[in-house]
């Protein structure tokens, strides 16, 4: 399960919208129980509508920040601009860490579709995404 606030979800989607027409991307900081503490935007150094790569400088800075703050790099998010929010063969082949959460947002429809997956030994499993609102919690899957 991945748990983030409404503001964090909006920040994640905004990062991906700003990158259009290219894929957008960034990293998630948080705790091992899946609670996100911050959404870290990255430029897509691949500058592509079909592939993404986190800026290596952002990667180093985020891992160092995680050490300093006593949290983990929980995972990565990126957008699919013309395909569903589901990991592609490239996403699976290049998934760097089986403990990570892989968040995808798709712009196929007007309302961005946001989903989260675990990828372990090439096997994809979708997980719940819980949005912590002020008055209610919303789970999507």
């Amino acid at each position: 399960m991945l748990i983030l606030t409404r503001e964090q979800r909006d920040s994640l989607i905004a990062t991906c919208i700003r990158a259009l027409p290219n894929e957008g991307c960034g990293l998630l900081l948080g705790t091992p129980d899946g609670v996100v503490s911050d959404v870290v935007a990255s430029s897509n150094v691949a500058e592509s509508t079909r592939v993404y790569e986190i800026d290596p400088k952002v990667l180093l800075r985020t891992f160092r920040r995680a050490d300093e703050e006593g949290v983990d790099v929980l995972g990565v998010f990126h957008s699919h601009t013309h395909s569903p929010a589901y990991p592609s063969p490239t996403d699976v082949a290049q998934a760097p860490d089986p403990s990570w959460h892989y968040v995808l947002t798709s712009f196929l429809s007007i309302e961005p579709d946001l989903r989260s997956y675990r990828i372990v030994d090439g096997v994809i499993s979708e997980e719940d995404v819980v949005i912590r609102g002020d008055t209610s919690e919303v789970s999507s899957r």
């Binding site: 894929e23 990667l59 180093l60 760097p96």
Partner: peptide, 12 residues
Amino acid sequence: ITLLPAVAGGCH
């Protein structure tokens, strides 16, 4: 010296 896996992917 720090080693980090590249974080990359794509839609196909």
